[in-house]
Amino acid sequence: MSSVNRATVTQSLSVSFTVGLYGTAFGAAGVAAGFSILQTCLLSLLTFSGASQFAVVGVIGAGGSAISGIATASLLGIRNGLYGLRMAPILNIRGLRRVVAAQITIDESTGVAIGQEDLGPDAMKHGFWLTGFGVYFFWNLFTLAGALGAQAMGNPSAWGLDAAVPAAFLGLVWPRLHGNFERALAITAVILALSLTPFVAAGIPIIATALLAVAFGWKVRR
């Protein structure tokens, strides 16, 4: 591997830590929903997709069936598959490494990867792996802390994490919004997702915007 760009490392660590801290909220939510500490931690270790994890503990905690919990969580997991589509040609790996890469293919690792595009494909790979492992480490660590009763840390709003996480993602997409075309696309995506939010199941508003990528990418741009 070529040497790792310092900006890539900083960004990977910032994202990993910020999102990882949110794990305390998940740990607390899991236990509050009636999951044991072990079950809560297993979700972070095995499912490893924050939105899906919050969804399943939310549904089960509210008295829903296992099937509806799994279905809701899975709708939110579809976008990770779409990220895999983007990351696979960049990573270009097989076998066990592909299994590991798949497990850490989430919003954060993909976001940091595309945030490094101006620095070249090596920086994208570094960003993906560093962030994937970084989030895995901190997310699981803080899930355990939250599940063990770090109640003081359990409210993400009290320390601004509720805005820090979207701001972190915004900072990753920002360098990709250099032209009017990309800006128009991003704004349309936000409008579409928010207009759908009151009417369809969680997860669908975001993956529906993939259709915009198809529509906007169909024809060659000037």
Binding site: P166, F169, L172, V190
Partner: peptide
């Protein structure tokens, strides 16, 4: 494929 993460992450920020 290049546009997909851009729209998904933009929508995620909005949501």
């Amino acid at each position: 494929n290049t546009l997909i993460p851009i729209v998904l992450l933009s929508a995620l920020v909005g949501v």
